[in-house]
Design a protein around this nucleic acid. Structure first.
Lengths: 209, 209, 209, 209
DNA sequence: AATGAATGAGAGTTCATTCAT
DNA sequence: TATGAATGAACTCTCATTCAT
């Protein structure tokens, strides 16, 4: 379609940051669709509109692209994912905010790509996986837990097993992410609507002071 | 180097079914550790104690091994994982049985291997993934849900959001599986102990009539 | 010329020793003509009549071929190159034998190939170069020296600087080897004829008792 | 890694002759150490402190650098390497001067570099090799031979096979060069000391009128 | 059923070279 | 003059697969 015989794309020269950005974006798409081993540098290059060798002007090899990708992509994956517990907010508002955040992520292809990538290729870079766990996930869980604890102390949330273990609050939406991963999007979206609602009601019931 | 002069593995001839079994077992180990693309037929052959070509006497190619593996492995992965709701059992007994089943699976390497395999390589065989979802997972969820419904009807379990959506009951242990997948075993085992307990208490509190 | 379009050479299967032999022969030809770096595995394969990958069934890589080649080729390169000093042989017979051996080697392409290879690529495998020096060349020189010493003791060869240092006896023919290396064969052959004769006369004059 | 943030080599602009000089010097070092094929333009550029493309501002390609290098380097390689035969000099003085010149060259890395280069890469530029032989080496040998002839005519040197063929005079020191090439420097230096002495005594004995 | 030498395709990578800046 | 991003070609090597034995 887009290939005209005999027409040779003019050489385009971009600033390194821009290219690197492009390369990482292309790589995320390929990696999360096919996995590390089944993704070739050639495919990445084609996606970027570069020759294979062009990639090597910016990264020293496939492995380095992979690491750079993980470093760039892991950290922000949970950013903005916060349960707030501000003064004057009712439990209903808190829960609604949480539910929205948790399930809206499912619409974000990057989030799912990273999610799959960590599970599928985590074994390839155990040190990065460990960092992700210890520097991203755990702090996130701890911070959320602390917030819930404060709400409990203030009497806005009922104490109990659920309030004591943030994972119990989070788990259904993680299940939703997984379900998304093994489903085609249309199907799962409607299937998950009822889970979302049930999750919401479960939180209301369990956390009601 | 590793060749001992004069020592040459005797050619062993086994019944096809036995060999196929061996090959699939070896393949599961390799695939779930390295993924489809990064696993070579040679490694599988070595694990089985066969030459590369020997594999082709039993399967027509790598792809066929993969499919055979999934077919064999998917179905039983949830077998025995049942919440029972028998007459005379107290809620405590029911919950304990469920919790044990759900968390003991984490010790089963095959379960985790299949779990990872489906997530990592599901895209390679969408039809199998779909079958797995529709013929294994969904029926399992439905059946469990039906059982919970009966308990509710009999008054052994309290109605509510949790009882209405079996996923809410299951989700924390799925989270545990995921956590296991991205952790080294020793670490995660102890980390998950408290989750297991909280999960148990959460179920007791939510389902208590 | 020899390539027929559409005709695909039947797969020929040879015993490993035979193939290895072929490969090493082809490699010697290529390496000594173009050097290690400028010789590609593809070219070697073509010379042998094998596919690139076929080479790797016998050697683990280019480096290993190189080492195997040196090991095989270095040792015999000086075999049969002996000054004899047998009872009843006149000095003239001894010198004639030596001169013949030393200059006939120049006709042997293998000898020259190895000679050039060691000089050009010695830096690539210092340990092999060292072995060659210590296990092939030096013993050869020592043994020859010992033989000359015996002749001197028996009064068949005159004592003096030349008889004391075998290198002085050898040096002109080594020069001839070098000259051969930097000349086209026809030219150098006739140029070296007079050197050969002068060398002979020099030895006769210097070693005459 | 090796890049210091904020520190960026200032673009230095030098006169073409100076740069060319630098480039050829760097090239000789690389070529004689690794050979033509194994030397990359990048390495040369780094040695010069230039970018790869910068090289192409001065030479049209790697091949041209190689030829320029040979042209520059060949001619002077035997300069100053002369047996003198001046009036009033004793044979001892003549021989001492020759021996010093011949063996001191072994300390000159440039000489050895050129020596190795010609042997290793001569096949790459046969026309240059031929020029070297015909315009540098042969004239040198002829000139030296003429000088010896004059000494013979004047009765300062004894006639004979050695005096008639300058190569016989030169050969042992050529052997020494070769030996140097295939040895680590420390080892060979001491090994060659006795050769040097024997060479000297051999010349004294052979050329004494 | 099993082997191992052989293969075509394609992987990651490097290199000499070009070109817009 | 000098740069560094970009390229096409070639490199070494691996892989799934085939085939004669």
């Amino acid at each position: 379609m887009s290939k005209e015989v005999g027409v040779k794309r003019k050489r385009v020269r971009l600033r390194p940051e821009v290219r690197k950005e492009q390369i990482l974006r292309a790589t995320l798409a390929e990696f999360s669709a096919y996995g590390y081993a089944a993704t070739s540098v050639k495919k990445i290059a084609q996606r970027v509109g570069l020759s294979k060798a062009g990639i090597y002007a910016h990264f020293s090899g496939k492995e380095e692209i992979f690491e750079a990708l993980l470093m760039k992509v892991l950290v922000p994956s949970f950013t903005g994912f916060e349960t707030r517990c501000l003064d004057g907010e009712s439990l209903e508002q808190i829960v609604d905010t949480f539910i929205s955040g948790a399930y809206d992520r499912l619409e974000d292809p990057t989030f799912l790509a990273v999610f799959r990538l960590m599970i599928a290729e985590g074994g390839r870079a155990p040190h990065l996986l460990k960092r992700w766990r210890n520097e991203v996930i755990k702090p996130y869980l701890d911070q959320q837990q602390a917030m819930v604890d404060r709400c409990v102390a203030r009497g806005e949330i009922r104490a109990g097993a659920v309030a004591e273990n943030y994972v119990l609050i989070l788990a259904p939406s993680v299940f939703a992410s997984l379900w998304h991963l093994i489903s085609d999007i249309e199907t799962s979206t409607q299937e998950l609507a009822s889970l979302r609602d049930a999750h919401r009601r479960f939180l209301m019931a369990s956390l009601q002071p």
